[in-house]
Amino acid sequence: MNNVRNTLRQRAIKAAKKLENTEIIDGIELIYFRIESETYAIEAGVVSEVHKYKEPTPVPFTPAYIQGVFHMRGNFVSLVNLKIFLGIPEQNEKVATLCILFLSDENMEFGVAVDEVIEQKRVSKKEIQTLTAGFDLPRADLILGVMENGVIVLDGKKLLADPTMIVHK
């Protein structure tokens, strides 16, 4: 009981403090998420919302990375398996997929199955280092860069504008 009060007090002190100049100029808002053991990030601007995972309805005659569709506030939205789409090699240990990340812009909307959504954070653009040639991902053009802690930052706008996402043609 005492412990809990202590924790609450500390938290209150922390919250009462004036925000220090943590504002990062020339920053970018990123959503961090995890697929298997890898951590990825994507611009928060393209993420419309996060949803709990539910099994989609599989659609026949679609590429392997389209896991299926589901009904979402009156729309049918396709669910993309990012692992297959980006060509990330399969890992032996299976982790429960918990969340769906909805990406959208004015033209396109689809969901991405991820294992966990970690947090939203503002980082400086300088922290994101563009990939050097010779990186062995097949769709390296969809990657904005890599951060020092090993997080891969995906280019959300390019992902949404990617022609292979439009299936009905």
């Binding site: 601007g45 996060v50 969340c99 947090e119 939203q120």
Partner: peptide, 16 residues
């Protein structure tokens, strides 16, 4: 807890 985490992320997306 997971769901509330998700909720938090959604909230922050909305905040952005």
């Amino acid at each position: 807890a997971n769901q509330s985490n998700m909720l938090a992320v959604n909230a922050s997306i909305e905040a952005v």
